[in-house]
Design a protein around this nucleic acid. Structure first.
Length: 235
DNA sequence: GCGACAG
DNA sequence: ATCTTGTCGC
């Protein structure tokens, strides 16, 4: 029986799944967003052969998509990747990074599923509920659900279904590239979620906030330096 | 039993 | 996710 540390307590995989099912009932799936002046991208990377979890949050002005703040948190990795339990592995570092921010984001775009999850509680729901901030899940790959064929043109959109239930939207953010799997995280409707994702695109497959978070989470190159220079310039 | 399986 | 250079195409 595999167990892991979460919120100062040891959980078994079965207990973690039960917790997700219970927490999913607290997710607000209608719009409770207010005016959005800042949107943050959230992503996680791993260092030291996976022993260190590195979360990055990049806050951008909306809708100009200018970087206005960012934070990086490195914590020891608490558990391996288990499909469906990704958030237990990533949320601690993400929540830590969120607390380090100077500029509080009005909306979160999380790299991963939100409601499009077997128990309707992907990482975007987990982070959104525990932080209290409206959140959207933006995944590059499907975890569950089925959908009709999607036209190759940009802005094509089809529903992601699990039986008769709509759990998300499949959006072609760029012509000819693999689509994005958009689903609600917390305090937002699916329709608004898709609109915010589209309004955060800047010609690339991924929304700008997530592109920034991706770079900052993977610690590659001189992205942190570049981000730092942009921030001091805007002071 | 077999196939699927976010990051 | 991560290990990694060049390369084909819009």
């Amino acid at each position: 029986m595999f167990t892991f540390e979460s919120q100062g307590r040891c959980l078994t995989v079965a207990e973690a799944r039960d917790w997700q099912q219970a927490m999913a009932r607290q997710i607000v799936c209608c719009d409770d967003v207010g005016d959005v002046y800042t949107v943050a991208g959230v992503d996680v990377g791993f260092e030291e052969k996976g022993s260190v979890t590195r979360a990055a949050v990049a806050v951008l002005d909306f809708p100009t998509m200018r970087l206005v703040d960012f934070a990086i948190a490195q914590l020891p990795t608490c558990m391996p990747y288990i499909p469906g339990l990704l958030s237990f592995r990533e949320a601690p570092a993400v929540l830590t990074a969120l607390q380090q921010l100077t500029v509080q984001p009005d909306l979160l775009l999380c790299d991963g599923q939100g409601r499009a999850h077997p128990r309707r509680f992907g990482v975007a729901c987990h982070v959104g509920l525990l932080s209290g901030i409206p959140a959207i899940g933006v995944a590059k790959q499907r975890l569950c659900g089925e959908h009709d064929a999607l036209p190759v043109e940009k802005d094509s959109l089809v529903a992601l279904m699990d039986g008769q239930e709509t759990i998300g939207s499949v959006l072609r953010s760029r012509t000819g590239v693999k689509p994005l799997y958009v689903s609600i995280g917390h305090r937002i409707s699916l329709t608004s979620a898709v609109h915010f994702v589209q309004d955060s695109l800047a010609g690339y497959k991924l929304p700008e906030p997530i592109r920034w978070a991706d770079g900052l989470a993977s610690s590659r190159g001189k992205i942190v330096e570049k981000a730092s220079r942009i921030l001091e310039r805007s002071i």
